[in-house]
């Protein structure tokens, strides 16, 4: 991959949260473990996994909304993993976030105009009068009628609120937007509106997205490449098409088989995985998936599988592949 194509590179990233008892760290929730991946300019990288697999923590570490325990995050050629809040501030213009819950992520006491212009004020962009024009333009771009600029969030529906959140995120013309479950709280008929909006904005402005979701159908639809996370590790990473016919990791296969599809395949009736996710405090030895894997070998219990490239652009962490 050409160096200038890569917008964000995550290298051997670890994020551990201490579990404190009596004030002392007695262990760590190992939310993200040795994750390396890259996001190219203008592409969408989908990040999928079940709850507790570390996808949100990984996303937040990427844009430094949380500190990094170990490893590096290189954004646009600059290592941002150790920067202070102050040093990060100018960089925030290039990286933004869209949150899951369109109800709690908008300040109920601010008008839509104030919400969307806040990042512009914070980044000192445009004069006050230009800002209003910019906000109107953004509202229009995101499918909101600019006459509602003085309204408050509670006057909007869930889908419209998510449009406000999107307008706020793209206000500063970022190069990268982290979409953390952006459509999970929306109704089915509204989801497709918001997904289309996000994809239109990308083709128009060339924003790169990291699209985090537990909904594989949605991630598959929006992404160019997809990373599958399990217990804080990337178990498979490949172009989206690979996930259609060529899923290699047993966990990926189980995950995709578990999605109920509209249709009447008799073969999809059986639950592919038994058991629950192990605790991220005491990670299983060896391959993190061996406790639920139907093909576990003795080697899987002791040796951690590396993420290997089995085909060009197709990475899998499994001893058996």
């Amino acid at each position: 991959m050409a160096e200038q194509e890569v917008l964000m590179a995550v290298e051997n990233l670890n994020k551990w949260f201490p579990v404190r008892k009596m004030g002392r760290a007695r262990g760590y929730v190992k939310a993200v473990n040795d994750v390396s991946l890259q996001i190219r300019r203008g592409e969408t990288l989908g990040i999928v996994g079940e709850s507790g697999c570390g996808k949100t923590t990984l996303g937040r570490a990427m844009i430094r909304l949380t500190d990094v325990t170990d490893g590096r995050v290189i954004f646009d050629g600059q290592d941002i993993s150790r920067l202070s809040e102050k040093e990060l501030r100018p960089l925030r213009r290039d990286m933004q976030i869209i949150f899951q819950d369109p109800y709690s992520s908008l300040n109920p006491r601010m008008t839509v105009g104030d919400i969307i212009s806040e990042p512009l004020v914070y980044q000192n962009m445009y004069s006050a009068s230009e800002r209003i024009d910019r906000v109107r333009e953004l509202m229009d771009l995101c499918g909101l009628d600019p006459v509602y600029i003085r309204r408050y969030p509670h006057e909007f529906s869930g889908g419209q609120r998510q449009r406000i959140g999107i307008a706020r995120a793209i206000a500063v013309n970022p190069k990268f937007v982290l979409c953390d479950e952006p459509v999970s709280a929306l109704d089915v008929s509204i989801q497709s509106q918001v997904i289309n909006l996000l994809m239109d904005l990308q083709s128009r402005t060339g924003i790169a997205y990291a699209f985090i979701s537990h909904n594989l159908n949605v991630v598959y639809h929006v992404s160019r490449r997809i990373a599958v996370l399990y217990l804080g590790r990337v178990v498979e990473l490949a172009e989206r098409e690979t996930f259609k016919n060529n899923r290699a990791h047993p966990y990926t296969r189980a995950l995709f088989e578990a999605i109920p599809q509209v249709g009447f395949d008799e073969q999809q009736k059986k639950a592919p995985l038994s058991g629950d996710l192990p605790s991220p405090v005491d990670l299983p030895s060896g391959c993190v998936f061996h406790t639920r894997c139907p093909y576990t070998q003795p080697r899987c219990r002791t040796e951690v599988p590396d993420l290997r490239e089995i085909d060009p652009g197709h990475y899998v962490a499994c001893h058996l592949v």
Partner: peptide, 16 residues
């Protein structure tokens, strides 16, 4: 309007 693994579509159908 629901994305589906079996059928690849460029744009999702939208209920306005």
């Amino acid at each position: 309007s629901i994305p589906n693994l079996e059928e690849d579509v460029e744009r999702l159908h939208v209920i306005e």
